[in-house]
């Protein structure tokens, strides 16, 4: 990603070998990339120009699917939901990850190694398992939430309600990825040269000053990467809501997120052409937002 401090495209170490051998190294990747990445994109562009009907068969419809998508409330409803999710969950998660990374890096923690590993372990838990697990615990009758509510004597938590379901999903996602983001940030902190700290110490800078003057600037690149991945992750939101759907069918509609919408369009609704269109529009939207974040991040740096 170009947002990491050095402009990527322009970097050319002086004595690089000009050689076709470069191609031979890149070729294997490019072959699979072309087949499993580029070709599907082109194929779905093609599909998005047709409409296959139960009655009347397949016909060319030009951009009709796109104009349908642009005015489709279900699609925009889902897109709005992931945007909201993105705007709330991602900052919280990254903030927690940042605090954790700084705390672990500060050396002021008892059991630092354990903390680091403990926070990271959820990342290794398959998303499906994580959702099943939290789904069990969210149960108001038989789960931990039910137990808690009984203990307190009132309904303090109600994950499966209209107001809270998105929060409940956000909690699962945060749980899964806080450690992962912490690790990315922590790894970046480890690369800060010791001399910088020594210089700061000589200047008599306190902890907070070191954080704001040395550590945070060093984290900028890593934060941009973490942000972009979180954005992409939010836009792809699928596993959590679709598995929770069986526990809360009326709360999570078949078009709850754009990804679920595309999935249901192609597998339940037999509208593969429209599903391809939705996937394309969503992909473009994600790429644009990721790109904007990246631009903003790098511009301030320069």
């Amino acid at each position: 990603m170009a947002g990491t401090g050095t402009p990527v495209l322009g970097r050319r170490p002086p004595s690089l070998r000009v050689s076709a051998a470069g191609w031979s190294f890149v070729a294997p990747f490019l072959v699979v990339f072309a087949f499993a990445f580029i070709a599907p994109v082109i194929y779905s562009l093609y599909l998005s120009l047709f409409r296959d009907q139960l009655m009347g068969g397949n016909q060319f419809v030009g951009f009709a699917n796109y104009s349908a998508a642009f005015t489709d409330p279900k699609f925009w409803d889902g897109a709005g939901r992931v945007l909201l999710f993105l705007a709330v969950q991602v900052p919280i998660m990254l903030f927690v990850a940042l605090v954790a990374a700084l705390a672990i890096d500060s050396g002021r923690l008892f059991g630092k190694r354990f903390t680091r590993i403990a926070l990271f372990v959820p990342y290794a838990v398959p998303g499906v398992v994580a959702v099943l697990m939290w789904g069990f615990m969210y149960g108001e009758r038989i789960g931990m939430v039910g137990w808690l509510n009984d203990a307190v004597g009132s309904q303090v938590l109600a994950p499966f309600t209209k107001e809270w379901i998105l929060v409940a999903i956000g909690n699962i996602v945060t749980w899964e990825f806080v450690g992962y983001n912490m690790l990315i940030l922590y790894a970046a902190l480890r690369t800060v040269p010791g001399e910088l700290y020594e210089a700061a110490a000589l200047d008599g800078a306190n902890q907070w000053r070191v954080i704001s003057a040395v550590k945070l600037p060093a984290l900028r690149g890593a934060l941009i990467i973490a942000t972009i991945f979180s954005i992409i992750g939010s836009f792809q939101l699928f596993n959590e809501p679709s598995i929770l759907q069986s526990l809360a069918p009326t709360l999570i509609s078949s078009s709850y997120t754009p990804n679920m919408y595309a999935y249901n369009l192609s597998f339940t609704g037999r509208q593969i052409n429209y599903a391809a269109t939705v996937a394309i529009v969503m992909g473009v939207l994600t790429a644009v937002i990721a790109y904007v974040v990246q631009l903003r991040g790098t511009r301030r740096e320069d």
Binding site: A36, F37, S44, I232, F238, Y263, S266, A276, M282
Partner: peptide
């Protein structure tokens, strides 16, 4: 390609 969500690609890949 890094910015293209893998899951957005999954449905088209499936179709192909």
């Amino acid at each position: 390609a890094v910015a293209v969500p893998g899951a957005a690609l999954a449905v088209p890949t499936f179709l192909m």
